[in-house]
Design a protein around this nucleic acid. Structure first.
Lengths: 209, 209
DNA sequence: CGGAACACCCCTCTTTAGAGGGATGCCACT
DNA sequence: AGTGGCATCCCTCTAAAGAGGGGTGTTCCG
């Protein structure tokens, strides 16, 4: 529990209106107050260090330094930071990356206000908070095979339209190796062609464009 | 101007917190009131017909029937409907489709509150409202070549990972014709391969997955 | 009427992708 | 010391993709 009675919160989202919604909603709760806002990941870290809030609400996909990277940096400097991800996306990889980065809660933007308030209270109390629809996504993920860092790198190149030869040059490896990675990617994502691999990976949050 | 003094508004967005933000923000304006909300395009049409508001705020990308289709239906039944699109996306095709469907304003979710209030007042007064960053997107679009309906259809199939042969079967045309369409698509989007065509089209809002 | 845009079909040719096998070295964990 | 995961390289072969030409019929508009 927080020192002054009220749970002190910062919110980080690049959409003004989402911040307005959060401030409005959290403001109605007697036991919470939003002490500051940020519109980017970089700004969020600064704001956190200035205000040292009890709970930080982060959007996962923000321009510039993304939410994942921001959370990772924040949690490495402040291991006690209580971060809740508040995202519009429910790709299994997004969710997994958020928790791996150090988040203690993940809540969808479509969820109702009570769920958000509950999440804030639970995380403030030192617990984890994972709604059913989010945890089911993580369960689905366990049935998938995960891509290696190199495979993800290759897939990202594919998404940008590069040919095998171009990828080989850019990564300084043989095009035989590129083909190998692609074989593994197609197998793991259970698709037949590189184009579908890209759209599936985009939907799951494995890569971004 | 509206009859009772206050501008009566409905908001349609699948994210609870965005609706909360809109209600909160619009509520602070003396001359506006949110009379109802909807969380889908279908619901939005019902709500519109029930309340007949002065202005309707629509998110463009919603699950089920998307914003474009909803606006098209709404405006065909109510040609005097004053619809403002309130979207997170700034793909040139999204913006163009919104206005083509009958929207009279398009404002980005990242914009500040004052811009939104101004947009609502302008559209309520019978004017169009296009912010500078949005109109520049439309200007960019003019320099692009637009895809024909058939080409868009083929591109959407490509995004789902279908091969030329599969597309030919599904559309009941020769694979020669599919190749023709793809040649045109690659030329118009100025890319070399189908995979890049898909990512470019996704970014521009030409197709969705 | 003529032209332009669209959708469709056909042929050839080169390049690319993808499936199938094989193999090596490195590193971490047991 | 052995195992498994990762990244790398190699070869062959078939299917697919893409570039380049050719053409038809429709519709719509000036």
């Amino acid at each position: 529990m927080s020192t002054e009675g009220k749970i002190r919160i910062i919110v980080a989202d690049d959409h003004y209106i989402v911040r307005a919604g959060l401030v409005s909603l959290l403001g109605t709760a007697e036991d919470m107050e939003v002490v500051s806002e940020a519109s980017s990941g970089k700004e969020a870290i600064k704001v956190y260090q200035k205000h040292l809030p009890d709970v930080a609400l982060f959007d996962l996909r923000m321009p510039g330094m993304g939410g994942v990277e921001s959370i990772k940096q924040l949690c490495s400097k402040h291991p006690d930071a209580k971060v809740i991800v508040f995202s519009a996306f429910n790709g299994d990889e997004d969710i997994h990356k958020a928790f791996e980065a150090g988040a203690r809660g993940y809540i969808l933007k479509s969820s109702i206000g009570e769920d958000l308030l509950e999440a804030v209270r639970e995380v403030d109390a030192g617990h984890k908070w994972i709604p059913r629809d989010v945890s089911s996504r993580l369960a689905i993920r366990k049935t998938y095979e995960t891509l290696t860092p190199r495979e993800t790198e290759v897939l990202s190149e594919i998404a940008h339209g590069r040919s095998n030869k171009e990828i080989a040059n850019s990564l300084n490896i043989s095009d035989y190796t590129v083909k190998d990675h692609i074989k593994n990617i197609l197998g793991k994502l259970q698709v037949a062609a590189r184009t579908e691999a890209v759209t599936v990976a985009l939907q799951r949050g494995i890569i971004e464009i």
